[in-house]
Amino acid sequence: MSSKSILVIVRHPPHGSSWVREGLETALVGAALGQPPTLLFSGDGVLALLAGQQRGALGQKGSAAMLEGLSLYDIEPLWYDRYSLEARGLTLDQLMSGCQPADIAGMIARHDVVMSF
């Protein structure tokens, strides 16, 4: 397989839709094929990084457990947009471990392919 760098951007919050889960599944498959994508959370996507999440209505699985396991697949750190975090009144210590602020413009420019969820 020819080698391209892939950036997965998650821009939606967890539980309200399946975007986070589907973005993470895409990233995991990339890792399983030997090329862990870069994973970035921006906009409401940063809300997926909040610590202390639970299952949702009808026992629907959320995405927090998946996120916490990503480092096992060499998908780390969990990059986030600091402006999105600030705009929501949140700070790094409210997020799960392994999160790191990103320079989004530079990150997009460094990757061959960008997938959005």
Binding site: S2, T26, V29, A32, V113
Partner: peptide, 20 residues
């Protein structure tokens, strides 16, 4: 197909465009 096919397509083809 599985998501692996999406990753293969992203690697093999010249452009990937998302229609959301």
């Amino acid at each position: 197909t599985g998501l692996g096919q999406l990753m293969q397509a992203a690697h093999h083809h010249d452009r990937l465009i998302t229609f959301a």
